[in-house]
Design a protein around this nucleic acid. Structure first.
Lengths: 212, 212, 212, 212
DNA sequence: CATGAATGAGTGTTCATTCAT
DNA sequence: AATGAATGAACACTCATTCAT
């Protein structure tokens, strides 16, 4: 089976306008179906129906279902890495809290879009090795950004900081998952604020302030 | 289709020794296959092969694949609920830390056995409503135990405590998942100890102690 | 596979009292389950549950499921043949009508018990050749009795009488089926009476009497 | 599971020429296999082999086995209802006999095609409620047509006419079944003629004429 | 004489992928 | 560039029958 794009042979095949539109429709439909049905229940049939194209067309643009996932995952990885890099220094004062809060707000927004992909990585639902690695790398970059800020804020052993980073990543991701997909009763703003306070206090040494 | 259990509404069908052994073999095999392949990829075929029984035998003991999952889930729910109840008061001092650490150690051990089930609940991979509710109830009891200790330790609004409980549950579960299944480089004891410190400091107001 | 009774080797195996009781229980259960579930949906499992014996016991008494049916069919054939023989002369007057009516009443009663078997024959649901032949023979005897009475009552060509006999048999069996099993709104007595009038008038040349 | 037809509530999915041919092949094969093997023994496997298509193709055109039966049943119901409506007045003279005979001839022809479906209804082999109702409605319309003609021909109580209608329906269906499928030794023309005479004489008060 | 346990071939259905037009 | 049609391997579940105790 030859992938129609020779993916590792030199980038995506150039497309005419119509082709680009169809590919975009498929990617959007993929995202939507993934979000609605979840990773395992997402059928090619659902995707092509949502994109209003035929089965055959799908395979004109993607070598297989996983190939579509890969495309989405790459986008997600890019945005997550960028987001990770955007986290500024977090001090123990109100500025640090504000930085955290705004950053978490951006993460939650990103999760609204790419939650399915992030979850697939977090839950190790990705059979394909290459894809799994992309997830691992992305998560590592994300955790590294957190660890860097943690170390700036408070001297810690590298190992301990790594574990704290993992715990932070875990908490942020799951909490966001609960908020966006599992009906935890809290709006996004409040979620970002609460999470920021918890992290600020718990991981960045902020003092307990009365009444929040 | 008649479920092999509880035709007239109550209790498991009585089995002879051989039957009990086979049921146990199937449950064990189910746990093992679930752990290896995950919830969605676990095939009845895998399970019966692991249990070394025929396909038909499986359906002698369980009405269907989900029924086996249910049996495992019920066990898990029981143990988790019991564990939740066993969390004692957590003060800001070394006693509180010790209590937390020991309790987390027990959770990690339980996760070694029932991780697949807990994960299935956490990741909402359970199609069956009844089973999903069992998970929700179990998690709720778990979070409630945490919230109760949090409120004891520090007066907080109910809502805030609930969110903190959710965040805690999320962090504990995922961190344990990383440790037990995703190769986070740390042994169980250290994991319990680290997690205990993080939680103690972050959620129960323990002071930052030098050098850990 | 050796049938436990060597059926064509010299009659049924002699049984002790206990054995006879078990066999009877199975035959009764077979009849009951057949009546409830119909020929195709009758499972060995249903039968042994109704008879309160184990699966193994069933095969102690019958070589297979069909073997039980055979036993029931033989009983039914005997009773039907006997009933066929009991039809007396049917003249065009009130005596003929009474004879018909009483005979039909007895048929309906028999149908209450052996309807499933009769239907299986009528509907050709019997895969086994030997059993099918038994049915064909029994029906033939039944039809022959009717034909004999028809010819007595009115001279007809043999061929025409045969066809009339077949039509009569068909009508009697199906009408009774409707009455006993399909909820045709009429009690058994009235059914016998009505059918008797229709047949008497339609096949035995009775004059149309006012008001019935 | 999405039924291949009428997602938004109306009408069959449009097909191209090839698709229509395949659907027709499947319907024909279904009819054929049903006729050969009967309702309960008809396997999807038999049908696709007869239609020379793959297993998967079957489910491209029908949601499941029952759905194919439904399609056949609907056709049958339409034709039967139309036939029922086409029965003209039946007087006691030769015109009435001719009308009956021609009508019965048409019924026998229809039975050649749709006998399996009619039989499934008559023998209550249809598990699906909706389908069973369709059968009941169709039979009711059929019987009603007969009853209407009976009442025209001879004043009777409504109840008695209804029972006579049921008996007539029973006789006509079974007799035709014997003729077309059970090897009753008579050709279709003669069958129609004989049945017409029997019914004319027996139910419509025709005098016994010599020579037959 | 009786039982509970075990078997495995058979059946309906799904869905990612390929193909002819 | 696009389509509708076709494929077949994979999977869950059933049930008549056999077997060890």
């Amino acid at each position: 089976m030859v992938p129609p794009e020779g993916r590792d042979g030199g980038g995506p095949k150039p497309r005419r306008r119509q082709g680009q539109r169809t590919e975009a429709k498929l990617l959007d439909a993929g995202m939507q179906v993934l979000a609605e049905r979840g990773f395992h229940s997402a059928r090619v049939d659902d995707i092509v129906r949502a994109a209003q194209v035929s089965h055959g067309t799908f395979y004109l643009y993607f070598a297989n279902k996983e190939d579509l996932f890969r495309a989405l995952a790459v986008r997600c990885a890019d945005e997550m890495t960028e987001l990770a890099a955007s986290l500024g220094a977090v001090d123990a004062g109100p500025d640090g809290l504000a930085e955290l809060r705004s950053w978490l707000g951006r993460f939650i927004a990103l999760y609204r879009t790419y939650g399915v992909v992030i979850r697939a990585w977090m839950e190790d639902q990705v059979a394909n090795r290459e894809l799994a690695r992309l997830g691992a790398r992305t998560f590592a970059a994300f955790a590294a950004a957190l660890v860097a800020r943690l170390e700036e804020a408070r001297p810690t052993s590298r190992h301990e900081a790594d574990l704290a980073g993992a715990a932070l990543l875990a908490m942020i991701e799951r909490f966001t998952y609960f908020v966006t997909s599992r009906g935890l009763d809290v709006d996004e703003d409040e979620a970002a604020a609460t999470l920021a306070v918890l992290i600020h206090r718990g991981f960045f040494g902020a003092p307990v302030t009365a009444g929040r």
